[in-house]
Computed example of a mutant assay.
Amino acid sequence: MYFRHSNEMWSEFPELVPGVLFAEGITADVTVTERVAHYHTVAAERLAQGGESEMPEIQAWRRAFSKMGMKPTQYRCASEALLRRFRQEGSLPRLHPLVDLCNAVSIAFAIPVAVFDRQKVSGDLEVRHAHGSESYLTFSGETEHPEPREVIFADTAGQAHARRWTNRQSGLSAVREDTRSVLIVAEALHGSASRDVPRLIDAIAAELAAVWSLQTRRGILSSSSPRFDLSAEGNLQLRQHRT
């Protein structure tokens, strides 16, 4: 299995900086309360200086959504939606230790972070424009079909694992109690993304090492090196680290 963005996506968004991490051995029987609280504190301090709409990370995604023909206040990237909820309620819902950690990291960095259950992804996963025939499973169990040309995370079987790029993930590959292997993707478009995304990916890798004692494979993608292979051999061409 590999993950990549289509050539057309790189052409339309040359400023894109994606970070990818793959890990095996996740369990739900761990406590992450204090670790989540640390990132929540970072997010609260940022929000105290100005709302999420003023953050350069969020502004860049709003411009991208406008470029894709969507109203950025109607369809928000995942990190903006989380920040908005955190600002209004002072907390985020607890779902799964890994998801809670990644959501907390996401609002601390103001960068969208997607977590996919590897076993629920058929074949390869690509961020591309939809044909319109792909299937998307909502968290309520309903099946939708993305609009043609909508940006989605699509696997080889034609399943859409996210709609409107970083707006909404699918219930099909959401992390559950029995999830063991995960693919984590962070994407940013702002000016300092080339520095911030590696820091974010390293932060998540450090948490996985501390909480689950896991080694991870990770890399930063680019238009000249757009593919992340989940096999160690396939990632030799990527700049990667091990915890």
Rank of each mutant, 00 (worst) to 15 (best):
Y2M: 04
R4D: 08
H5R: 09
H5T: 03
E8Q: 15
F13A: 01
P14A: 12
E15P: 04
E15Q: 10
V17Q: 06
P18F: 05
G19A: 06
L21P: 14
A23M: 06
A23P: 08
G25W: 06
I26D: 04
I26Q: 05
T27P: 13
T27E: 15
A28M: 00
T31V: 14
V32E: 00
T33F: 12
E34S: 12
V36H: 00
A37T: 07
A37C: 04
H40W: 02
T41F: 02
T41S: 09
V42A: 06
E45M: 10
R46M: 09
R46D: 08
G50S: 14
P56Q: 09
Q59R: 08
A60F: 04
R63A: 10
A64F: 05
S66R: 01
M68T: 02
G69A: 05
M70N: 13
P72R: 08
Y75F: 06
Y75D: 00
R76A: 01
E80T: 11
L82R: 03
L82V: 06
L83Y: 05
R84G: 14
R87W: 03
R94L: 14
L98M: 07
V99W: 04
V99Y: 05
D100G: 10
C102Y: 02
C102L: 06
F109E: 12
P112E: 00
P112H: 02
P112N: 04
V113A: 08
V113I: 13
A114V: 00
V115H: 03
F116Q: 03
D117I: 07
D117L: 11
K120C: 07
E126C: 13
V127N: 10
R128D: 09
L137G: 02
T138C: 03
F139E: 07
E144P: 12
P148K: 00
P148M: 00
I152L: 07
D155V: 14
A157L: 01
Q159K: 12
A160W: 06
H161R: 01
R164F: 01
R168F: 08
L172D: 14
L172G: 11
S173P: 02
D178A: 09
S181G: 06
A186H: 00
A186G: 03
E187G: 13
L189F: 02
R195P: 07
D196Y: 11
V197S: 12
V197F: 13
P198D: 07
P198T: 03
L200F: 06
I201W: 01
I201T: 01
I201H: 02
D202H: 12
A205D: 05
A206L: 05
E207Y: 03
L208P: 10
L208M: 12
A210R: 02
W212G: 05
S213K: 01
Q215E: 15
T216Q: 06
R217F: 05
R218M: 14
L221Q: 11
S223Q: 15
S224R: 10
P226F: 00
P226R: 03
F228N: 07
F228I: 01
L230F: 14
A232R: 14
G234A: 04
R239F: 09
R239N: 13
Q240S: 15
Q240T: 15
R242C: 15
T243A: 15
